[in-house]
Design a binder for these strands. Structure first.
Lengths: 146, 146
DNA sequence: CTCTTCTTTTGATCTGATCAAAAAAGCGGT
DNA sequence: ACCGCTTTTTTGATCAGATCAAAAGAAGAG
């Protein structure tokens, strides 16, 4: 049939996360599964395509709820709108194209997970480390300078 | 003596950077020197104190010009307003308190400068790596949970 | 001192995001 | 299958941070 894991799958994910299963949330979850690293503006059209009456606010709501429930992660590269992804739990990082803004996952920097020694520094109790690599993606590197 | 390099010093920095020396820029530069990791909202009152007629826009202008000229660096922790600092050139990173927002510099993560192997990844030409540590500062750790 | 160029001011505008109240829908209990 | 409580969604206002643009003002080369 199709390989997007729509349908009952999304419902299960929501239920397991303790969230009520609504068509709106299922639509957002599926859209995000299909297009990781998307912003509200990118997701909204996909949601509307499937749910003509949907509001942009409902996408904000769903993404906020997903993040709070731990089934989505929000990233916010400097100067960019917030983006979301469903890959949570593994502490991966991101590679952002400074021209077109496309984002790719980077598994980890120096081999293993504790690549960035989140320990004590300057008296801070460090909880997490966020790494963003800035560069130029292959497509932009090949394209003429705008 | 004093360690804020106000006065003629700021003028020299501006001139050397190829920027016209104006009272507004000198005020912003001195304010930023006195309070690194400040946002426009934090810097503006300091600038106004010395230059009663100053506009907030002039602070945005100056900081943008400093950044373009390479004498300041802008950082933007997720969900925070943009902040500026005069330490440029050394690729240092930041430690941000997730409660109060205070920022501290972190010299480098894994010992030496190329701590984050900015090389090729997924076809990207990586230009820089930005690391943000999130944690709780000593002051907030000691304070009651709000 | 004059003239050109760059800055500053002023005020509008923009994006991304949040807040709040009323209407609508989910779902547990019966 | 229905009821009723609770959560969600919608709608529309509001906010923060930042940017844009035109007119007025200052810097500095000659």
């Amino acid at each position: 049939m199709h390989d997007d894991h729509s349908g009952p799958d999304a419902s299960a994910v929501l239920r397991d996360a303790g969230l009520r299963v609504t068509e709106s949330r299922r639509a957002v979850l599926d859209a995000l599964g299909a297009r990781p690293h998307s912003s509200v503006d990118e997701l909204f059209p996909l949601v509307v395509e499937r749910m003509p009456g949907a509001s942009r606010q409902s996408v904000y709501n769903a993404l906020g709820d997903f993040t709070d429930a731990g089934i989505a992660r929000r990233i916010e590269p400097a100067g960019r709108a917030g983006m979301y992804e469903l890959r949570v739990g593994d502490n991966h990082h991101h590679l952002v194209c400074s021209r077109c803004g496309v984002v790719e996952d980077v598994d980890c920097v120096v081999g293993e997970a504790p690549c960035l020694t989140p320990s004590h520094s300057r008296g801070f109790t460090v909880a997490s480390a966020e790494v963003t690599f800035w560069g130029v993606c292959p497509a932009c590197a090949g394209a003429p300078v705008e």
